[in-house]
Design a protein around this nucleic acid. Sequence first.
DNA 1: TTGAAAGCGATACCAT
DNA 2: ATGGTATCGCTTTCAA
Lengths: 358, 358
Amino acid sequence: MNKATLHSIAKPTINDIARSAGVSLATVDRVLNERPGVRAVTIARVNRAVDELGYVRDTAAANLARQRVYRFLFLLPDTRGEYFDFLQAHVEDHMALYANERTYLRTQRVPTRNSNEISAVLDSLTIETTDGVALVAPETPTVRDAVARARERGITVVALLTDLPSSPRDHFVGVDNIKAGQTAAKLIGRFVNVPDMSENHVSCAKILVLADSPFSRSFLERRFGFDSLIAQRFAHLSILPTVVMRDGHPQAHEVLPRVFARWPSIKGIYSTTTNNEVLIEFLRAHHPKLSVIAHELTPLSRSALRTRCFDAVISQDAVHIVGSAVRLMRATVDGTPYNALQERSRIEIYVEENLPDR
Amino acid sequence: MNKATLHSIAKPTINDIARSAGVSLATVDRVLNERPGVRAVTIARVNRAVDELGYVRDTAAANLARQRVYRFLFLLPDTRGEYFDFLQAHVEDHMALYANERTYLRTQRVPTRNSNEISAVLDSLTIETTDGVALVAPETPTVRDAVARARERGITVVALLTDLPSSPRDHFVGVDNIKAGQTAAKLIGRFVNVPDMSENHVSCAKILVLADSPFSRSFLERRFGFDSLIAQRFAHLSILPTVVMRDGHPQAHEVLPRVFARWPSIKGIYSTTTNNEVLIEFLRAHHPKLSVIAHELTPLSRSALRTRCFDAVISQDAVHIVGSAVRLMRATVDGTPYNALQERSRIEIYVEENLPDR
DNA sequence: TTGAAAGCGATACCAT
DNA sequence: ATGGTATCGCTTTCAA
């Protein structure tokens, strides 16, 4: 009795293929890797053996022999605020772990709104030092062209968090922001309690939407999803014009007091910004009675959930985002398949009760 | 200029260690794997070299040389209903993928409530054919002892979905069911609209809790979390006694009509069951105006969310659960570290809007 | 107590 | 167009 029948797990190796097809290891390798210089009949013979024996390549052994290493860059906005710091820290915390998988990560921050600078960084990358780049960037013509040039040089490009649908990026890692906006709308719609909602007495509760970059693709998508669901399902709510509030700007602290003076009946806030420091400060100081939904689970937003400043946070898992980008870049570089199910990013909803420990 | 300075990524190998410590490969290996027969001074010398060069073992190469394979069993309840079928199908769908990582998965179904049968299956496992088992089981003395015996035979044991805290299991993969129950309470509390809630006029909305196995640890934990949060934060809701409803039982269809006849003012349902077929049928037939929260995202519960039978579903990702169990079993078998951050399971909240595509 | 050498499964260079 | 063989980083047997 051989090993195969004993545990029924003996995977065939290229040696088995070579023997079965009556050729050498080198030829099997040529066929498997579609290298030139093999007669069609030989190719057929090898492929038949592969099928018959049910051969599947041992990636670990292949990578060992190849001495393959992957060098990836995470190109993130230098946007003031904790979210991208958080993401960068996460990448850096996991560098050692990825290094064990022959994967070497770097991070770089770049001014988001400056397409020329993003383009310059992309142009500076060569296949000699960088196999792939995961970038968060707005889709301008400048960025699109730089992405195209990078890919022509053989560099894999993954769009992170915001898609670049009309650029030739290899993958997008992130969530559907329209659905994220709809999710926010659903929660606000269900959370905002309208005391007396008789059909005649039109008492429209006001909802405030905050944004830091009101023309970014991701904001527009969220806003679109939010507005459409509110209009369709929660007609008792009316949405105020978008209020721009960028943390770090001198006037940031004056925005909310002014808004609340103008519309005292605000019953809900949907914050699409990546930094909620000023918002939280305001809520802690005035604790108005309203529902607040924000984006991205960070130390700050966690504490806001715990203290019930926020009612819910819509997020996407940083661990997953980074891991997914890495796995997709590796698969693209190697031309190997990936598990689509595993790579799909989820729109997570957090309330105080389901906060993860860390 | 050597490779190290060129790309600053040359990982030291055992060859480097051997040279630096002035010993042979075999000795380095003995030290690294804590094999006997090495003088203390030699051990020290090798370890110093390891530290100085910052050596970390290449697991892929090690597994290749070792011809290591992992053989794991997923032991699932044969509970009627789609949830465990779904989980089993998921494991089976991924067998080929895991096989590429030298990991061979099997599944087996066993009557949940029959500790003797679970125990018999565990006792039948030997280290010759099984390196680890991930099991869903109630924590009875019988099960606990069987787990202990399996571990004594060198088999890794992971508790899946429901913990076995007083058994010597190696890991638990699943979520904190108390928090899951609290999360359900929070959502029901916020979703159930009580029209007139003046302090004097005590109009308590009734909440129905459904269970299939009302004495299981996971039900009791969910229920505890649910009750405590409702009592603490949503005093306007009152919870009815648990109603047991097991799909497949002849009387299952009669339960809900009887309950609603008795308490017509039910405003919310929290279903903790693993199978919601009968509930959904009832809701579709009578569509009462109330909020429904259920557990586990399955084809059935997805469609219930889409048709707004359910308002929210609390779930844990099957892909993650299975992957986590596999990674933890491998790490345990090898005695290698794992990424705790990656292995933490999340309490996911789904509404219609944030449903993943698949 | 230590070392030399033969693999593990795949790749890649050098011959033929 | 094909084959032989060294090599990747690590483990393991056999000798010394």
